[in-house]
Amino acid sequence: MKNRNFLVMLFMAIFTVIGVTSCNDDDEEGRKVTDYKEYTLTVASVKLPGVLTSSGSNVLTDVYAVKNEQSTDWEAQGSIGKFEYEEGYEYQIRISETSYLDYSMGDPAW
């Protein structure tokens, strides 16, 4: 009788371990970081008129003129998170850009 109870408990333990580990598949769930970059932007001392596209419509507004550390050309930037801008000062700010692969988004379009 003790042998039988031991075997039942052993099989239950094995099936429990298999069940728990099969549900824990970290490669297929949540977001996975695919790229991370840090670089310095130069923000011009004045904002310039520019066009921003939001939800399919174009909006005329003042935008930041920014230049990446590897570039010589100025580009328009609509907003910069957690940045307090005061006109008349040129800024050099260090920013980061993170790209994610989000498995919860479902199947890719292709």
Rank of each mutant, 00 (worst) to 15 (best):
11 F>C: 08
34 T>Q: 02
26 D>F: 11
38 E>M: 11
40 T>V: 12
84 E>N: 14
100 Y>A: 07
19 G>T: 05
92 Q>E: 12
78 G>R: 00
3 N>I: 03
6 F>V: 07
62 D>T: 11
69 E>Q: 14
85 Y>A: 04
98 T>L: 15
30 G>H: 08
100 Y>N: 08
89 Y>Q: 10
43 V>I: 15
48 L>P: 00
31 R>G: 07
96 S>Y: 14
33 V>H: 08
87 E>I: 05
77 Q>K: 13
67 K>L: 00
23 C>V: 07
89 Y>I: 10
30 G>Y: 05
108 P>W: 08
32 K>D: 09
103 Y>D: 08
97 E>Y: 08
19 G>D: 02
73 D>K: 07
1 M>Y: 11
38 E>P: 02
61 T>C: 04
32 K>M: 06
16 T>L: 06
9 M>S: 14
5 N>D: 03
14 I>Y: 03
44 A>K: 00
57 S>W: 05
72 T>M: 12
29 E>A: 11
16 T>W: 01
32 K>R: 10
9 M>V: 06
31 R>V: 04
33 V>L: 14
48 L>I: 12
16 T>I: 04
62 D>V: 03
92 Q>W: 05
4 R>I: 03
49 P>N: 05
62 D>C: 05
1 M>C: 10
96 S>C: 12
80 I>W: 00
21 T>I: 07
107 D>I: 10
27 D>P: 00
37 K>F: 08
45 S>G: 04
70 Q>C: 08
45 S>Q: 11
93 I>Y: 01
1 M>A: 14
45 S>D: 12
10 L>W: 10
56 G>W: 00
61 T>R: 10
13 A>R: 02
83 F>Q: 03
88 G>T: 06
51 V>P: 00
44 A>V: 01
83 F>C: 02
38 E>H: 07
21 T>G: 01
107 D>L: 13
83 F>R: 06
41 L>Q: 02
38 E>I: 10
43 V>Y: 00
87 E>S: 14
99 S>M: 09
103 Y>V: 04
90 E>G: 03
104 S>W: 06
68 N>D: 14
59 V>R: 10
100 Y>E: 09
108 P>D: 07
41 L>E: 00
40 T>G: 01
22 S>G: 04
29 E>M: 11
99 S>W: 10
14 I>C: 02
4 R>V: 09
14 I>H: 01
24 N>D: 13
65 A>Y: 03
12 M>T: 14
58 N>Q: 15
105 M>F: 07
12 M>V: 14
103 Y>W: 14
70 Q>D: 14
95 I>Q: 00
95 I>V: 15
73 D>E: 12
16 T>H: 05
106 G>H: 01
25 D>K: 13
66 V>Q: 00
40 T>C: 01
40 T>N: 04
69 E>A: 13
108 P>Y: 06
39 Y>A: 03
57 S>Y: 09
